[in-house]
Design a binder for these strands. Structure first.
Lengths: 224, 224
DNA sequence: CCTACCGATCGGTAGG
DNA sequence: CCTACCGATCGGTAGG
């Protein structure tokens, strides 16, 4: 076997960060761009973030993101699609763990808790970008996201309907769903996680579990 | 009395729109800039709106807004301050009309209804800009808005506390307030007013009164 | 993916 | 408030 140049095992300590030669590089840089974009779009907003900043964050040159994405808008769409993919995976997993004898209230608890996790937990840059940069998408791109989001939210409908039928949820299901999502999604604007250092102190901030129980207490009545 | 030049009553049909000569012009152009900025910031976002567009909308030259405002950020702040001023005026007026024998539920209804009006009613560009362009303010400007907003929201606290004490509101008052505002504020993202033409038709959209009743049904239990 | 580059736009200013 | 202007930045591209 003729040794190819890639066998030389070059010790590159200079230059941009690159995958070791044997590694499959397929979507790796692309994923890095999406993650960097999500973080910057979340922190500074879409319009206020330059493609140069995103490139710099992953060690690329200013023009290089356009090798992976046709334009800046496509990168924004990729962030949102990736976020919804993760959210749906988590939501499906959370639902799957529910045993049959759980109550509808338990089901809603799981959905709400997962939503807070997606909004405020680790790796939670993607969904806030989707929620707050919707306006920057093209009409066609919005359709794409709308479809994905509708699928995600559809899981909530039967749970809310069951709660409505049993009298635990009084508002019309359609408006209730919109307002509940609003109450949860808005937490991105004000929630600050409890600092681990002062965890023993008195001025503890609310945990995601606290938020979940507060939401349930706010929306649901006791079962009849 | 010597006739001053302003008495000539010049018939200007050319040139930029100007106030008739006798009129006091003090903050008039400034107010026009604020209103135009509010509309454009609401529709396109702060970063995506150029000061040139704002100037054009009120018939000014590209550099002229900077005669009224030191920079673009100051104009954004002015939009928000004006919005909060209007919202506070309306809220105070709404509260003042409440007779003493009204229930706490009635009080909350009035507050929620006013909030929907401020968010979705006529001249409702200002508050959405405040809610969704917060990030674009400087740290100092945020303090200014925070104080005004705290005053506005303070009115809600005793009402929510009373409802909590009587068992109609079960969630902790602090978190309940944040989530209720979230549910209401989020309506900016999805609400579309009923079209007047098809008002007799079947596919009616919700009115602001509908939203208010749905919100009350969602948050409150029947009094004990 | 880098190099080198461009046209367009933008916030803001000097001077009247 | 207009005229005239500037420096900076930005999204994006050609060619390798």
């Amino acid at each position: 076997m003729i040794s190819s140049p890639t066998h030389v095992a070059p010790k590159r300590t200079r230059g941009r960060p690159r995958k070791t030669e044997g590694e499959r590089d397929d979507g790796n840089r692309r994923q890095a761009l999406i993650a960097a974009a999500a973080q910057l779009f979340h922190r500074k907003g879409y319009d206020a973030t330059s493609t140069r900043e995103i490139a710099a964050q992953v060690g690329m040159q200013p023009g290089s993101p356009f090798y992976h994405f046709g334009n800046k808008q496509d990168l924004l769409l990729a962030v949102m699609v990736e976020g919804m993919r993760q959210a749906a995976v988590r939501q499906n997993a959370a639902i799957a763990t529910l045993s049959a004898q759980k109550t509808d209230r338990d089901r809603l608890r799981v959905l709400i808790r997962n939503q807070f996790d997606v909004l405020l937990g680790p790796d939670s840059d993607f969904i806030p970008v989707m929620l707050y940069e919707w306006r920057s998408l093209s009409a066609e791109q919005r359709q794409t996201i709308t479809q994905i989001k509708d699928d995600y939210e559809a899981v909530w409908i039967p749970v809310l309907q069951a709660l409505h039928d049993s009298g635990q949820l009084q508002a019309p299901v359609g408006l209730a769903r919109l307002m509940i999502f609003g109450a949860l999604n808005w937490s991105v604007q004000w929630y600050q996680p409890p600092s681990p250092k002062t965890s023993a102190k008195k001025n503890q901030r609310a945990t995601l579990d606290d938020l979940t129980e507060a939401a349930l207490a706010l929306f649901l009545r006791d079962p009849a």
